[in-house]
């Protein structure tokens, strides 16, 4: 019975990784940039929640904070990322690594190093009890919002002209160029979407996590693992991998091997890479594999 609860809880946990990992995967697939600063945008989203809430409430922060983070994403894409799409990947790694440090230090200078206090808004407190399974009402709302965003993103990528161009760009940017379509505005839009999602995750997790300058580091590593397991360029790969990572972590705790719960997700990654080097649903991408 407890194990069933742990499985369910683990799957639900996976949803948090999803918000971060989807954006990471999008930006990587289209521009080839491994955004090590993704966790920093998550942290900025959380801090903006603390700044905005006193004026507009949690609801206001939920809308405004991801939008502001997305605008920051566009700014950074236009001024920095675009210069590195075609260069050696070590340069973009260095860029985003540096960016992550600058962002973390900036948060530390502005808000101080100690964690800041922020709680679940009154209206969203309480628990949901189904049989023997207890879950926080806030997390139900959180997962609802996350699932809606993921569904919206899927629709955008699969069912709209915008999505068609993005998917074509992921597969073969030169062919898209040959067809007379400039990928530039799409790159900016994808950066805004991906980074905005990280900001949204920051808002959603601020009430239940400690809000501190390095909070991005806690979530970025599992998100990378999710992207690698899921496979580059695969929307559903990331979704399945996120749930799988949450599940493995939860079950490891559930069966009494909590100390190995972090190691287990790396082991899972190793196994997946051994069997499927492109990840679970990774497609062959000519431009990434010579």
């Amino acid at each position: 019975m407890l194990l069933m609860q742990q499985i369910l809880n683990g799957l639900l946990d996976g949803v948090y990784y999803l918000l971060i990992a989807l954006g990471l995967s999008l930006i990587f697939s289209l521009g080839g940039i491994v955004n090590l600063a993704h966790g920093a945008f998550f942290a900025i989203g959380a801090y903006l929640t603390l700044v905005i809430s006193p004026y507009l409430g949690f609801g206001g922060a939920l809308v405004l904070s991801p939008v502001l983070v997305a605008l920051l994403g566009i700014l950074i894409e236009r001024t920095l990322f675009r210069r590195f799409y075609r260069s050696d990947p070590i340069l973009s790694l260095l860029l985003t690594f540096g960016l992550a440090m600058v962002a973390e230090q900036a948060l530390r200078m502005i808000f101080g190093a100690p964690p800041l206090s922020y709680s679940i808004p009154q209206a969203l407190r309480g628990q949901v009890v189904i049989g023997n399974f207890i879950y926080s009402f806030y997390r139900v709302v959180l997962i609802g919002i996350a699932v809606a965003c993921v569904a919206g993103l899927w629709f955008l990528l699969q069912k709209t002209p915008f999505g068609r161009v993005v998917r074509a760009g992921v597969q073969n940017p030169d062919m898209v160029g040959a067809l007379g379509i400039s990928l530039q505005p799409y790159m900016a839009a994808v950066a805004a979407l991906g980074i905005g999602l990280a900001g949204l995750a920051g808002v959603l997790l601020a009430p239940i996590y400690a809000v501190h300058p390095a909070m991005g580091n806690e979530i970025i590593t599992p998100a990378f693992v999710v992207v690698v397991i899921g496979g580059l360029g695969s929307f559903w790969g990331v979704v399945v991998a996120a749930l799988l990572v949450g599940l493995v972590k939860g079950v490891m705790v559930g069966i009494g091997y909590s100390a190995a719960s972090t190691a287990a997700i790396y082991f899972l990654m190793l196994l997946v890479l051994l069997v499927r080097p492109r990840g679970l649903f990774g497609e062959r991408m000519t431009r990434l594999e010579q």
Partner: peptide, 12 residues
Amino acid sequence: DLVPTDAADFSS
């Protein structure tokens, strides 16, 4: 339970 130092979620 031993908790890895990078764990942030305690729901399990």
